[in-house]
Amino acid sequence: MNILWDFDGTLFDTYPAYAGIFSNVLNDEVSETEVYGKLKISFSHAIDHYQLTKEQVDELDRLKEKLDPTEFLPFDQVEEVLKWADKNVIMTHKDRMGVQAVLAAYGWEPYFTELVTMDNGFPRKPDTAAYQYLHDKYNIDLVVGDRELDLLPAKALGIATCMFQGNSEVADYRLDHYRDFFDVISSEVRPRSD
């Protein structure tokens, strides 16, 4: 099975660290829990919702750069799925250096055949261009993401979708924990034998 993964909130629990620095930029006037909910929609949604100034966005960017990669924890048992898959690829709006730093911190670089990041220049999700590129190259069987935005391009291309820790009518499958992956998904979608 060839799997296309979102990064933030799907492979790694990045939102708590981002919510912390976001709350800090807002002088702790907004709880991290509230910020987390806005970030789960998208980073740009949270920036717009809280009407951050250019100075606040610049401060947010500075604080993001200072985060240690180990502050982003991998979700339990996702590594077992990565080991099981034939090929794993990532499509994310994060920058390549940030993704590579987190993968290197956990020794996970070998699990991924290709990373498509904002540095590749593809339009942002839900545009299908990056997914089409990866699907043409790797014949993707499943897309896993934590937001509907991650699944919409796959659905448009006819690729099976899995929502992680969320709800969406777009999702073919839904998981709260990766320990359930093999019961929920692999029983219906088998890895390639070629």
Rank of each mutant, 00 (worst) to 15 (best):
G9K: 12
T10Y: 09
F12P: 15
Y18S: 07
Y18D: 09
F22S: 11
S23A: 09
V25F: 05
S31N: 02
E34D: 07
K40M: 06
A46R: 00
D48Y: 04
D48Q: 05
Q56K: 06
D58C: 04
E65H: 12
K66Q: 15
K66L: 15
K66S: 13
T70D: 11
F72L: 11
P74T: 04
P74F: 14
Q77V: 10
Q77M: 12
K83M: 14
K83N: 12
A85W: 12
A85I: 10
V89D: 11
D95H: 15
D95T: 09
M97H: 15
V99G: 12
V99I: 13
A101K: 15
A101N: 15
L103W: 14
A105W: 14
Y106T: 08
E109S: 11
P110H: 13
T117I: 12
A129N: 05
Q132R: 10
H135Q: 03
D136S: 00
N139M: 04
N139A: 05
L142I: 01
R147Q: 06
R147I: 02
L157G: 01
T161H: 06
C162S: 04
F164G: 03
F164P: 01
V170Q: 11
D172E: 08
Y173W: 05
L175I: 06
H177N: 13
D180M: 06
F181A: 06
I185P: 03
R190Y: 02
S193P: 03
